[in-house]
């Protein structure tokens, strides 16, 4: 096939590129971050990697078939990609604490931040339901934004803007 018209050539290349991106063969090139967002966000908010240290994520990833009472198992390839992403973006310093329960909500920093200036009984409110339901108060969870300025406790209006 002889292609001697620049415009036609471009259209052809664009068409092939578009078709390739839609092809499952190339779905494997989906980034680890996207895999993390899709898989870890399937049943709950995709909790930011920085909230737990790498060692804790390793434990979580090796027990996905019994993930806090649910089967969250992944195929080997996806699991490997997500493990790599979590290790790269894992927490340290204040966020380096490794809770025995593997739960973010059992770290000292989490408990401190959710008891100062607020009533922890809100977690039991039907409007929140569970400590796992970050998005009930943190309006920016979809963008990984847990800052104070984006908190709205249901039934209580806005928090002060001091962040």
């Amino acid at each position: 096939m002889k292609v001697n018209n620049m415009k036609t050539k471009f259209v052809l290349l664009a068409a092939i590129a578009a078709a390739l991106t839609a092809s499952p063969v190339f779905a494997a090139t989906e980034s680890a971050a996207t895999k993390w967002a899709n898989e870890c966000g399937g049943c709950h908010v995709a909790y930011p990697a920085k909230f737990l240290p790498a060692a804790t994520w390793t434990k979580i990833m090796s027990g996905l078939d019994k993930h806090f009472g649910s089967d969250a198992s992944l195929d080997a390839q996806t699991s490997k990609a997500i493990s790599g992403y979590l290790a790269t973006n894992a927490g340290s310093g204040k966020h380096g604490e490794s809770p025995a329960s593997l739960r973010i909500s059992d770290t000292r920093w989490f408990q401190r931040e959710h008891s100062e200036e607020m009533d922890p009984s809100i977690f039991k409110s039907p409007l929140v339901k569970s400590v796992a339901n970050c998005g009930a108060c943190h309006l920016g969870v979809a963008k990984g934004d847990y800052s104070e300025r984006n908190i709205r406790i249901p039934g209580q209006g806005n928090r002060r803007n001091d962040d």
Partner: peptide, 8 residues
């Protein structure tokens, strides 16, 4: 639907 545990 809504996840029975997480409300997602």
């Amino acid at each position: 639907g809504k996840h029975a545990k997480t409300d997602k």
